[in-house]
Write a protein that binds this DNA or RNA. Structure first.
Length: 161
DNA sequence: GCCAACGTTGGC
DNA sequence: GCCAACGTTGGC
């Protein structure tokens, strides 16, 4: 079974990559997803061992900040059941939690965030969802070649031009 | 802060 | 089941 790749979006001001890095064991649950399309991907396709590009939205700059790895496949997202949680969903119940989370572990923070503007100009990434205008899906599939290109851009950044 | 694009809601 | 109105996302 082939390893898959994903891009997870998080608002930098809400949950930056450092928050994951600084979590116990650099591991945390990726919860709060409240979009059915994203939920279905999380629930059905994201598996342990998959690679994840950690993308900062509304960031400074906006772009891919680093990588992490899935350490646990989908499980019920309990933040939907807690009225004190920001992502509380009154329609979610313990019997039917509606929403799922996965667990991820921090892998690497890029020396420099790979900016979205650069991704948009890079050959080979034309079809990457995050580069498309108006794309709001917070869990996106990434191809192996896109993954490789982004990592290459990250390691090239900071070197002399 | 603006506003385009998207998802959801609700009247019919 | 359509679709207009509304709320949210997120780049700029």
């Amino acid at each position: 079974m082939a390893r898959k790749y994903w891009l997870f979006k998080s608002e930098e001001s809400c949950y930056p990559i450092d928050a994951l890095k600084n979590a116990p064991n650099s591991t945390d649950s990726w919860d709060g997803v409240r979009n059915y399309q994203a939920r279905n991907i999380l629930r059905d396709e994201v598996k342990k061992g998959d690679g994840v590009l950690f993308h900062h939205s509304s960031g400074n700059p906006t772009g891919v900040a680093g990588t992490c790895v899935v350490t646990r496949a989908a499980f019920p997202d309990e933040t939907a059941l807690d009225p004190n949680e920001q992502h509380f969903d009154p329609k979610a119940t313990a019997e039917d939690p509606r929403w799922v989370a996965v667990e991820v572990q921090f892998k690497k923070k890029f020396k420099n965030t790979v900016p979205l503007a650069e991704l948009k100009q890079t050959p080979g990434l034309e079809n990457m969802m995050v580069t498309k205008r108006g794309m709001r899906l917070s869990i996106q599939p990434v191809t192996k070649s896109e993954w490789d290109i982004v990592l290459k851009m990250a390691s090239a950044a900071g070197k002399k031009k």
